[in-house]
Amino acid sequence: MNNIYCKTNLSADSWQDSIRKAALPLIQNNYIEKRYIDSMICSVLEYGPYIVIDKGIALAHARPNDGVLKTGIALATFTPAVKFGSENDPVKIMIVLAAAGDNEHVELLAFIADLLGDENSIKEILSATDDEQLNSKVRGICYE
């Protein structure tokens, strides 16, 4: 997958800030509009921390018509980890999913399932010390 952007060891003042910072590469590379970030944050405010899908892992997303320009993924690790108010807190890995349509949504979910498929993969992601190394590890996990 060529449309994935990785960032390591980000810090955030709040869970809202963590979503903004994790999604920034998608803004910078014209995958999403700023309103997509606002929509992700509003969804958590409305429905609670449902995006925290597993221990230490959040999957932020919104509807395609909320500002997705093209399909892409951003993955970020946070140090220190971020609290969302979920039983699976604190979040160390944030994935921002931007799917332009239904087919792309299914493809991205399959990619994420491969990426987070086992505990060793998660340890590999968390052991990355810089963006380039994280990018290499993510591609290695998904294409072994």
Rank of each mutant, 00 (worst) to 15 (best):
S18L: 07
L134V: 00
N2Y: 05
K55E: 14
I57K: 00
S18R: 12
K92T: 08
N30V: 01
V91Y: 00
S11L: 10
A76W: 02
V138Q: 05
A100P: 03
D114P: 05
F111E: 14
F78C: 06
K137M: 06
S136F: 05
L26Q: 09
S43M: 01
N2R: 13
V68E: 05
I95V: 12
K34P: 08
A12T: 11
H105L: 14
S127T: 05
G117V: 09
N120C: 04
E104N: 15
Y31N: 09
D38K: 03
L45T: 13
I37S: 00
A128F: 11
I32A: 13
L10I: 11
I53S: 01
V96Q: 07
E124P: 06
E132H: 09
K123I: 04
K137H: 09
P90K: 03
D54Q: 10
N29R: 12
A98M: 05
R63M: 00
M40S: 08
M94G: 00
L10V: 08
K21V: 09
N9W: 01
I141L: 14
M40K: 05
P64L: 00
E144T: 02
Q16F: 03
D130R: 08
K7P: 00
L115G: 07
I112D: 01
A74I: 01
L24Y: 07
M40C: 13
A113D: 10
N120M: 13
G101E: 09
V82S: 13
I53L: 12
I4D: 02
N30P: 08
A22Q: 07
T79N: 12
I27H: 10
G56C: 07
L69P: 11
A81T: 02
Y143R: 14
